[in-house]
Amino acid sequence: MMVRGTLKWRQAIALLGLLGGPTLFLGVFFLGPLVIMLIYSWLEPGLYGGVVWNFYHLNYGRIFGWANTRYEQFDPAYLRIFARSIWLALCTVGLSLAICYPAAFWISRQPEWRKNLFIFLITLPFFVSLIVRLFAWVLLLRPTGFINQALMGLGIVDQPLEMIFTGFAVVLGMVYIFIPFMFLPVYASVEKLDMAMVEASFDLGAGRWQTFRRVILPMTLPGVIGGSIIVFIPSLGNFIVPSLLGGAKVMMIGNLIEQQFLSARNWPFGAALSMVVMATVLVLLLVYVRQMTREDRAVAAAPEPTGDMR
């Protein structure tokens, strides 16, 4: 009894020693700021920046449609920017998936040493500075950039194409920086794909398309969904890519938030906008985790296939 008691004490002390510092740190400097941001989003903006400590719901009203009728009409501009951000993030997910999926199949069929080399080469850009990688696309897409110079030099066009400061440029930039995020989860499930199942499907008379739809796609779906979520989240709130490659023409929610803090100086409104971004992300993750646990449970609950099933 005594021994067990001291053991418990010892464990508690060890746990406190390990967790005390980091918990305090994250509580103050991670949860604290999020709570203060939540409070700010319900406060009244002051006249010259700053806040007035009054409860004020019109920060959210400005976004979702109940405006302060004394000063302004409801302007759906904010909803439009939000919708555009979701659209561009979805395009990013779609395009990066389209690029990574075939590549994952190609790499999974290589000999072992080459596989490792290729995966190393795909992860390497993740460690290269983000701003450097985006700078490369500014150089490529500008009116006086590499692609336009090459096209004009070859006589294909006689005026520089407008490539930078378009929605396409923003999507391209985001696809480029998030490729490792999409590739690794997709590759993980493609690698696990049992080729015997694919062969069985062919043997049973299924065509290429049918095999893909009924066998390959469902089996690689977890990687596809995981990769899509990991790419969607940073794309949605991105503001570096649209500010460098989208300019003033293609504004995303991230740029709107930045403006509220650094030029418009309406902090409560900016806080409300980022609460909306955070809520979107959290809802998405919750749905994803729910789905995953339900699938796990379904797999666990399913009866083991036995030989004598008729």
Binding site: F30, P33, L34, I36, M37, I233, P234, L236, G237, N238, F239, G254, I257, E258, F261, G270, A271, S274, V277, M278, V281
Partner: peptide
């Protein structure tokens, strides 16, 4: 998202 943590 980076921007949320940054402004918080």
């Amino acid at each position: 998202p980076d921007i949320v943590l940054g402004i918080a």
